[in-house]
Design a protein around this nucleic acid. Structure first.
Length: 513
RNA sequence: CGGGGAGUAGCGCAGCCCGGUAGCGCAUCUGCUUUGGGAGCAGAGGGCCGCAGGUUCGAAUCCUGUCUCCCCGACCA
């Protein structure tokens, strides 16, 4: 037993699900709203989302994709054109049927039967259909292609079982929709989006991911190919953190996205869609959180450095605040990751210890405390969130001179970013098992008594249809799912674990969120 | 959506079985003491007991319905 007094009451190792919920509330990320599956995202949580938006949006724009906004409501008829797509979403759709309320005579309000909509509207679960509709108007000739549109929006899927950030009925995301002249161009865009997500997750969120293709049974409804990035959470489960779909021509056919090609012939466009959502915040928590709360990678942190003056409510406060202001101004001139540092001087009244632990739980990368003694000696007390505790089980402060601290901040932040990623990679790589060749062996690897088994990468023959369904059922009995076929996996060189036929590739098997 | 558990102060909980003035710890506020690594003492404020009905002289407590959350399933780009 360690003597460390952690900032949270639930240990990751004891109760991962309970710990997750405690982080969400203790780090001030979000709270329940009273509506099933809908959450209030609080300023610190939303600040993290804004950072993700800003960084990913820059990548999207760099790829020549334009932002636009499409309506929340979609006419039912519009949605019903692509059969597989409809079937995939029909069970989780919110429907608007009335446009007016009327008094019920008992002090309440009910939908006015007189105000029933001729045609119900659905609340978008995704916007393929309505954007496809627009694209059909915008595309006439091959010169109009490629057409690349992105929107940042909320979507609604009526989930049976919800969890904060991981699966909510309403969530925020970006959805990119592109239309192309050829299948080749569309596939290139599909892979570009996938690579964009991989780089964003790893280089900015410090979340290691494996990019690969989803098997047939895990495809987006109506898609020809679905690709994903998969991240391993600290409990060994997989989280799909971003997806990119090559949709072929079926959506173009359903929406009427046609163009005259270079020979003057009418052709269907090839479409692609790709998305990343607030679920990424759940991934951030389960990748970087610890028993003291969240740890936010510096590139994602709304505030990278929080300065806490030790105010005493006496005459000394003014000078101390002045000292901290000077520190803040100097630090704000420093850069890291090609952006100015984001520094908060938290001078609200209150005990410094209480405020310190608030920021530890929220996961600010660097906390700088300044007391009268620091000021006298021209120094500060600096605490790194990624290395909180010293060997004695105390908060591990260092005491650089003020100028030295300011000058070193960008290097410290870069180091925190790098070490968080390296730590996550190490944890993940240690838990990917590549030597499993038989189903019994697979079952043993994922046996219930094994606490955090991680993932298995196995060889398979890529069965399809009912043969695949049988394999999926066998896995389901073990609560396992296929994640993806990693792009960079080694070539197959043995029999399929499931069918015994010669394997054609390697696929990841894991429990998943 | 099925099975189980829960909802009482900002947070964590007791009270409910057996109906009778709303409690505890932490947090908050005030005062005093303390003052560099999660302070101490004293006092104070804060409640549609999830919501709606019902039974009753009287409901946090009993009954019915309903909403929300958690766990297990089913479902799930």
């Amino acid at each position: 037993m360690s003597a460390i007094r952690h900032a949270l009451t639930t240990r990751r190792a004891d109760d991962f699900a309970g710990w997750y919920q405690e982080v969400v509330s203790a780090a001030d990320l979000a709270e329940e709203s009273g509506v099933r599956g809908c959450m209030v995202i609080k300023p610190w949580g939303y600040g993290i989302w804004e950072r993700m938006q800003r960084l990913l949006d820059a990548r999207i724009k760099d790829a020549g994709v334009d932002n636009a906004y499409f309506p929340l409501f979609i006419p039912l008829a519009n949605f019903t054109r692509e059969a597989a797509h409809v079937e995939g979403f029909a069970k989780e759709m919110a429907v608007v049927t009335h446009h007016r309320l009327i008094a019920d005579g008992k002090g309440g309000l009910v939908p006015d039967p007189e105000a029933k909509l001729e045609e119900p509207l659905i609340v978008r679960p995704t916007s393929e259909t309505i954007i496809g509709d627009a694209m059909a108007r915008w595309v006439q000739s091959w010169r109009d292609l490629p057409l690349k549109i992105n929107q940042w929006a909320n979507v609604v899927r009526w989930e049976m079982r919800t969890r904060m950030f991981l699966r909510t009925s309403e969530f925020l995301w970006q959805e990119g929709h592109t239309a192309h002249e050829t299948s080749e161009d569309a596939r290139i865009e599909t892979m570009r989006a996938l690579e964009m997500y991989r780089a964003f997750a790893q280089d900015q969120c410090a979340i290691p991911v494996i990019a690969g293709e989803k098997p047939e049974n895990e495809r987006f409804p109506g898609a020809v190919e679905t690709w994903s990035i998969e991240a391993m959470m600290q409990d060994g489960k997989a989280l799909q953190a971003g997806t990119s779909h090559y949709l072929g021509t079926s959506f173009a056919d359903a929406s009427g996205i046609r163009f005259q090609d270079r020979e003057g012939t009418q052709q269907l466009a090839h479409t692609v869609s790709w998305g990343m959502s607030t679920r990424m915040i759940g991934g951030l928590i389960m990748t970087h959180g610890d028993d003291d709360g969240l740890r936010v990678p510096p590139q994602i942190a709304p505030w990278q450095v929080v300065i806490l003056p030790m105010l005493r409510g006496d005459d000394g406060d003014a000078a101390l605040l002045e000292y901290c202001e000077a520190l803040k101004i100097a630090a704000t001139k420093e850069w890291a990751f090609d952006e100015k540092l984001r520094i908060l001087l938290d001078s609200r009244p209150g005990k410094v210890a209480a405020k310190r632990w608030d920021w530890v739980r929220r996961g600010a990368p660097v906390i700088i405390e300044v007391g009268p003694r620091d000021m006298e000696q021209g120094r500060v007390s600096l605490l790194r969130r990624d290395r909180l505790w010293n060997a004695a089980g105390k908060a591990d402060f260092t005491n650089p001179q003020r100028e030295e601290a300011t000058g070193s901040l960008s290097a410290v932040l870069a180091d925190i970013q790098a070490s968080m990623f390296a730590g996550a990679v190490e944890q993940r790589d240690a838990r990917i098992e590549r030597g499993i060749t038989g189903f019994e062996q697979l079952a043993a690897f994922f046996a219930e008594d094994q606490h955090q088994p991680g993932w298995a990468e196995v060889q398979w023959a890529r069965p399809t249809g009912t043969e695949l369904e049988q394999v999926v059922e066998r896995l389901k009995a073990l609560k396992l799912t296929f994640r993806n076929v990693p792009l960079d996996a080694a070539a197959a060189d043995g029999p399929c674990l499931f069918t015994g036929a010669p394997a054609v590739e390697r696929i990841l098997v894991a429990r998943a969120y």
